[in-house]
């Protein structure tokens, strides 16, 4: 294997795969959300295009592609055009550090199922997902209009506030696993036998709530709620730019689900490793387990959206500052105490 293939071709192939993987999940999510939410609300949802409406995302993409691209005259052209790019960029970049499974051995070459592994991978992913506020706020500002600006400001305040419990709960996982390397965290879960979601349920619940709030999803989707702010920060966008915002939100959801799965639910590990009778589960490759778990959390996202009513914005902020952050802090203290006393 020449250095050219190993150093250039394979990383480029991985980058293409890493861009395709969230996009494919986005396509699945578009259909999943509309169909499942509809069925849960007692109506049918898209069921005409293809079997059970599976081709609906294709129809959506074609429609959005051909829509007219409108921009107001008083909007800031440069920022208006660059905001969808920024949002997409931040959603996709973090996937470089997300591991998908154990390295595969092909002949003499070991193919690692990640683009980059870093001893601070967890911190990098947190940082990259906090860059998503740039696209939101530039989009809101550049639209030069009331509702987008208010929606953007609310969204940014929400994301920034909910980053704190995210960081604190992730800290407990890094503390127990003694590493911020995502691959190492999964391997520690394998070695210790218990997934961290069952070892530290409070961390998982706080992280899940914060993650739902960070992706601006129901019940925390006031910044883009239709009955409140028209459509929030992407009101003035139409056509492919709106599609970018839409896809970037789903890609962010996939990223957060991946993070939950890796940190709290064993990543690519099969469940019940100590039960001998279920040893056949190990025959299924890790990547498949990973996908199954991610699909479960994406379904959970959709389920929560269909079920819970929307939080009012000040109630949302009160929730994080008065309840989640103290809870996350106390949780971290308890975890640290238990660890030290062990």
């Amino acid at each position: 294997m020449t250095p050219f293939v190993a150093d250039v071709l394979i990383p480029v192939g991985k980058i293409v795969a890493v861009i395709l993987y969230p996009m494919i999940m986005v396509v699945v999510m578009i259909w999943l959300e509309r169909r499942v939410v509809a069925l849960m609300q007692g109506r049918l949802g898209p069921n005409r295009v293809g079997f059970q409406g599976v081709l609906q995302p294709v129809a959506d993409a074609v429609k959005l592609f051909f829509k007219e691209d409108i921009m107001q005259r008083q909007a800031d052209a440069f920022l208006f055009n660059i905001s969808p790019v920024l949002v997409m960029f931040s959603s996709l970049l973090a996937f470089c550090f997300v591991p998908l499974g154990e390295p595969i051995r092909i002949g003499t070459y070991t193919l690692t199922l990640w683009i980059a592994e870093s001893p601070v991978g967890l911190l990098i992913i947190l940082g990259l997902s906090s860059i998503s506020v740039f696209g939101v706020i530039f989009g809101g500002w550049a639209s030069n209009s009331k509702y987008p600006l208010m929606g953007a400001l609310r969204s940014v305040v929400q994301v920034l506030s909910y980053e704190i419990p995210t960081g604190l709960t992730v800290l407990t996982v890094a503390f127990v696993a003694r590493s911020m390397d995502l691959v190492e965290i999964v391997r520690r879960q394998e070695a210790s036998g218990t997934w961290y979601g069952f070892l530290m349920p409070v961390s998982f619940i706080v992280f899940w709530i914060s993650a739902v709030a960070e992706t601006n999803r129901a019940p925390f989707d006031l910044p883009e709620a239709e009955s409140e702010l028209v459509a929030g920060y992407h009101t003035e966008y139409s056509g492919m730019k709106f599609a970018f915002f839409y896809m970037a939100e789903y890609a962010h959801m996939v990223l957060v689900s991946s993070l939950v799965v890796i940190l709290f639910f064993g990543g690519w590990l099969p469940p019940f490793p100590s039960v001998k009778a279920l040893a056949f589960l190990h025959a299924v490759p890790g990547f498949v387990w990973y996908l199954v778990k991610i699909m479960f959390f994406l379904y959970l996202y959709v389920w929560i959206r269909a079920t819970l009513p929307r939080y009012r914005f000040d109630a949302l902020i009160r929730l994080v500052w008065k309840w989640l952050i103290p809870l996350a802090l106390v949780n971290f203290l308890v975890v640290a105490l238990v660890r030290v006393l062990r």
Binding site: P119, V120, L123, L126, G127, S130, I131, V156, E163
Partner: peptide, 22 residues
């Protein structure tokens, strides 16, 4: 300096630049 890069993105990018925007 990977830790520094992560802190730069998290603190400078996600913090200071957003502060400027606000």
């Amino acid at each position: 300096a990977e830790y520094l890069g992560a802190i730069q993105i998290l603190v400078y990018g996600g913090g200071i630049v957003v502060l400027y925007i606000f």
